[in-house]
Design a protein around this nucleic acid. Sequence first.
DNA 1: ACCCACCACGCAGTA
DNA 2: TCGCGTTTAG
DNA 3: TACTGCGTGGTGCTAAACGCG
Length: 591
Amino acid sequence: MPDELPIGYYHTNFCKLLAFVQNRYHDLLTHAERACIDDFHDLTPDAQRLFVRLLTRKGPLYRSDRLAYEEIGETEKALDELSSAGFVFALSRNDGEHEWHRIGVSNAEFPEAADEESKGNNGLDTEAVEVSQASAVDVSDVSVEGASKDAVLALLTRHELIALLKTGSTSRRSQLVAEATQLPVAAIVQHLPFRVVMTRRLQEVTCFRLLFFGNTHQNLTEFVLRDLGVAPYETYTIDETSRFFTCRDHVEEVRRAYEISDHCHHLLETPDVTHIERFAGDFPEQISVRATRLLDRTRNQMARQLERMQAEDAALAIYQQSQTHPARERQVRLLIAGDCLGDALLLVNRMLAEPWNEDELEFAYLSKHRILKKLGQPTTPPVRCQPIVNDLVLEAETDLRVEELVRRHYEQQGYQAHYVENALFPGLFGLLFWDVIFSHQPGVFFNEFQRGPVDMFDSRFVSSRQPLIDECFISLSSGNYRHRIRSTFRHKFPAVNYFVHWGMLDEVLLETCLDRIPADHLASVFRRMLRDLRNNRSGFPDLIVFPPGSGYELIEVKGPGDALQKHQRRWFGHFERENIPARVAKVEYAS
DNA sequence: ACCCACCACGCAGTA
DNA sequence: TCGCGTTTAG
DNA sequence: TACTGCGTGGTGCTAAACGCG
Ligand SMILES: [Mn+2]
Ligand SMILES: [Mn+2]
C-alpha cells in the first residue's frame, strides 16, 4: 500500500470513472451526458485537473484565489477555458447584474432558478432509450442548484465583510453576513478581489457517479482510501456484461427517488401537515426495486411525521402506498387506535399470511390477540420466551458504560470476557462465508468498491449459492471451519465487507471462540442469520464470557429501566431452542 | 434549503 | 496565542 | 410492560491548514 499517491491521482480516478461510464453505459446516456464527456476530454490537462479538483471540493461556489495547485500551471487560464467550455461560471466584479442573476445571485428574495440546465429535460439521442412518461413528475423545484447572495457572502472572510460594510464593528461573522445580505448585488460584487466560480454540469456528473457506484453516497474518495490502504476492497470478479442499470428509465427513477427523498428530508425540518401530505401522497410510480424501496422508506418517514402531528388519516394514506416494513405495522396501530378493529384485523390477517419479515410477523400475532380481545372473542396471548435473568448489584462507576462494568465484573470472577455485541457472530459468519459472499455470480459485482454482492440482503443470496453455503456447513461438521476462519482472518484483513469489523476482533478472542463455542451452535446461529441477513445481523448479546476451564456464555447487559428489544428477544428465543447458553444480566446500582 | 446519515442502542417518559 | 470546528488533501 | 421520543455513539483515516472568536 503506497503512502503517496501519484501526481494527478484524482484526475486519473475521474477518468477511470468516465471511461467506465462510457464503456458500459454509452447507450443509456443523454445528449448532454455524452457531450459532457466529450467536452471534458477536449479540455487541456490543466483545465481537466482543475475541474476535477472542484468536484472533490465543497461547492458549488469557490473563490478563484483559493484554487492554487502546484500541478496546475495557470489557474486563471484554466478557469477561462472551463468557463467557455461550459463547465463553470466564473464571474468577476466586471460582470453585470444580469450575469450574476444567471447563477442565482440577485436582489430578489427568492430568485428564479436561472441555471437553465438544472431543470432542463436533457433530450435523448434517437439511438438512446426513451425516458418514460411515468417518471415525468416535475421535481425541478427540488433539484434547483444554484448560488445565492448568501452563498457569495459565505466566500468572504470576516475582514472582507467588514471592508464591504465599511463598519469598524467587531461583531461576529454571522452578524456581518446578515447585514451584508441587505446590500444590493452590485454593491457586494463591486470590489470582489477574486472571481466567483460555480461548477456546472453537476447533473451529468452526479449521473456518472450513480452509474459507476450504483448509489449516490460513494464518491471519488473511495479511490483514494482504497489506494492508501485505508479501506481496501476485496478483489472479486467484476461482471463485464451486466450492469447496475439496464435501461434509462431505471436510472431516472433512482435519481428522482434520491431527489425526492432529499426533498422530504428538508420538509421534515419544518414539518407542515398539508405540505407533507400533498408531497408524499404523490410520489411517482416506480418500476425498479431500488427506487421503490427508497421511496417507500421515505413514505414511512413522512407518514411517521404525520402521526406525530396527529394527522392520522393522512398518515394512513401514505403508509398504504408503502410496501416496506413497518408500513403495515403502523397502519394496524393507527386502525386500532382509531377503533377500526375490522380493518385492522383484515390487515393483520394479510400480514400473517404473507409477512414481510419476522418483526412484522411477531407484531401481527400480538396485535391479532389484542384485536380479538377487544372484540370479546376467545384468544390466547402468543407465547414469548423467558430468558434467564441474573440480577447483579454493582457499584456505579462514572464514565463507564454498564456493559463495560459487567464485563469487568466477569473478569474479576476469573472469566475471560469480551464486549462484542454485533461484531462476534456476524464477524465469524463473514469469515467463514467470505468466499461465498465474494464468489463469482452473474450480475452481482459491478465496480471495485462494493462491500458485498448486490443480492447480499435478499433471498437470492442463498438460493443462487446453495452448494457453496452447504460446503461451509459441512466444514462446520468436519471441524475444518476453524482453519477456514483463521486463514480468512489473516489473509483478508482489513478488506471492507458487510460483516467483519476488523477492529473489534483479535486472534485471542477468535481462538477462544473457536475453542469454546461448539460448531453446531455456530451452525444454528448462521442458519438463522441466513434466513434474513438484513435483519438478523443485529440484536446479539453484549458480552461473550468464558469461564475458567471450559464453556462459554452470552450475556445481554441491561441497566435499570432497560429491557430486551424485539430483535434481541428473537435471538434469545433462538438461543433457548438451540440450547445456546445465554442470559440477561440485570444491573442494579448499589448506592 | 442539503448543516452526514444511518442505524443500533440506551434511557426516560408515558399509558 | 490558542483552542475549535471546518475544509482539504492524500 | 409496551411504546415512544430523544440522545449518543460508531461507522467511515488523519494530518495540516485556515478562519474564527
Ligand atoms: Mn448492547
Ligand atoms: Mn444491553
